[in-house]
Write a protein that binds this DNA or RNA. Structure first.
Lengths: 337, 337
DNA sequence: CTGAAAGCGCTTACAG
DNA sequence: CTGAAAGCGCTTACAG
């Protein structure tokens, strides 16, 4: 059923070396020979065996993507999924196939799995501990980290400037005249939640507004349900909430739901702001004011940079952090009710 | 850097045949020999080369997933992404790695790409034309279709019972006392949108309610924006809309947004119902009444069934269609305002 | 410009 | 229970 290079060679009357040259488009081959081979390939519907090819060339043209995440959804996640989409797109452009793997445990197990498949490079999404980073370095395989921390500066990692983003958020809310702001802070062991909150808090302080500890809800996950629970908890502590900032959109949306169910309106009674600019932020009702963080660009760059590293290119330097961008929508339009 | 089976053989003082036997866990090998080999593997941190393995065993332990879709997002899509998540989960459970590929064009090109990588099987998500199905059959590779049509009954395809789902939707809306219903109908060339609408329409008719042509908006895509535009178009035609059904949640959410922007309330002025039960249906404000369609189960089954087909198992028969389930939420609670 | 030879890292029968 | 041999389908030097 499946023909090999030998079948093509026979049919076209040349050696398999020649066939190899035309399919890999390398080395010299006379136009006449090339034509005959091409014709035979067409006739036989021959497709080169990528596995055999990878074996000898030591290049699989495969990239492994590992998304570490505790909770579902993963691939369909509005933030990580978006990055994945961009990776998929750019990879196909550059001729790579993508192995996707999701894992709840941040261990080397899932990575080993892909390593046995001999991927040419790895894209690691989410936070990793240093031990694991060391492990990857030892394997010698090129890899880039996306949206994760890293103490080791010699690891390529793509991140958003979340500190700056937090500042932008604070400035917007402050410009509305807020003098007290409640915050739903995502897991502080995550780089992005930590920096967003830090930037936010500092900017507030700089403008003379100190966030009170009792007005902060430290979320255990960064999910919708936690945002919902977060608002309820804050509301129980104090009924004077007028302005709420959440370190991501999902939780902000959860809070909005809780606010409505409590019989209040957004932004009428409480102005709410999120972070990420997931697709649903714009679709939500009311549409959610947020800070746009790069997802598509990150995914594209991850593949491009990894490709360079694979090609054994020059010493790449860490790209600059992506600039956040304020997206003002209805959830904070307090003047227009 | 990377050790081979020969290095392990040398270190443990046995032949590579024996090493092969212990790593592939087949054939006899004495406990003593096994121990020595295992120890050498540990010491060398040896990892079998999956490519070489795949080459001779003719099994890659890879499954290719191709999602054909015109518009972004694809991986992060609330419906298809969810299926992908389930596929990923089950695949890792069964020891498969997943190649993911998204393509806007429904051609054999992207499939060829994966075929060259020699996947053991293929999962095709979305509608395909018969020509392409024929193409896949010719390759002889096992494949299953998810959420797509197929005239050829000998192709495994997993689908929801969308006809029944449409009926459930109609019955719910009718039970609310609706005597006229407007509909946003997704692309009718898609099996699911077509059947959902068909089931809905027929059930209405059976209860004496005929859907008027002017109350139907035929959407060009199934996206949020089309739902938004859909409501506006319908509203322009008639201001007496009280009940709206959309053949998917995304468009329903778009319609809800348009309704609010027009200064009306859901369900106060207009009751809205969607279809799919994507995560956001429950999170939306107001939460969206919808019909739950299987996504996770579909993804799991796709891998399980494909695995059986790969194992050369017995003649699988097409599994029954997944039963839809009504999810009543706030967007149609017209009695409670 | 082209062909013969060696080899990539494994597994699979086949002797022993 | 174990080892030697052949071979999977390609590519890569090396002669010619």
């Amino acid at each position: 059923m499946n023909y090999t290079i030998i079948d093509v060679a026979k049919l076209s009357g040349v050696s398999k070396s020649t066939v190899s040259r035309v399919i890999s488009n390398s080395g010299y081959v006379s136009p006449a020979a090339r034509d005959k081979v091409l014709q035979a390939i067409e006739e036989l519907q021959y497709k080169p065996n990528g596995v055999a090819r990878a074996m000898v060339s030591r290049q699989t043209q495969n990239i492994g993507v590992i998304i570490y995440r505790q909770h579902h959804p993963i691939a369909s996640h509005p933030f990580y999924g978006k990055i994945l989409d961009a990776i998929l797109e750019k990879a196909s452009e550059l001729g790579y196939s993508i192995f996707v793997m999701t894992d709840k445990d941040i261990t080397s197990k899932s990575a080993d799995f892909l390593l046995e498949k001999r991927v040419d490079g790895l894209i690691l999404i989410s936070k990793l501990n240093d031990e694991l980073i060391q492990y990857f370095k030892n394997t010698g395989i090129p890899f880039v980290m996306v949206n994760g921390t890293s103490e080791s500066s010699d690891v390529i990692h793509l991140v958003n400037d979340d500190l700056k983003g937090g500042e932008l958020a604070a400035e917007h809310l402050l410009s509305l005249g807020a003098t007290a702001i409640s915050v739903i802070a995502g897991p502080q062991e995550h780089r992005s939640h930590k920096l967003r909150f830090e930037g936010f808090r500092n900017a507030c302080l700089k403008h003379g507004v100190a966030i009170q500890e009792q007005d902060i809800f430290y979320a255990e996950s960064s999910q919708f349900e936690e945002g919902y629970r977060g608002f309820l908890t804050l509301w129980e502590r104090s009924h004077s909430i007028r302005t709420l900032f959440s370190t991501n959109d999902m939780m902000a949306l959860g809070a909005v739901k809780a606010i409505y169910e409590a019989g209040m309106l957004v932004p009428g009674h409480i102005a709410v702001m999120g972070f990420d600019d997931i697709d649903y932020a714009a679709m939500a009702n009311p549409s959610l004011t947020t800070v746009h963080s790069s997802k598509t660009k990150m995914g594209h760059d991850a593949v491009t940079i990894l490709d360079q590293a694979i090609q054994g290119g020059e010493k790449w330097s860490n790209p600059p952090q992506y600039k956040p961008e304020l997206k003002i929508r209805h959830s904070t339009q307090i003047t227009k009710s």
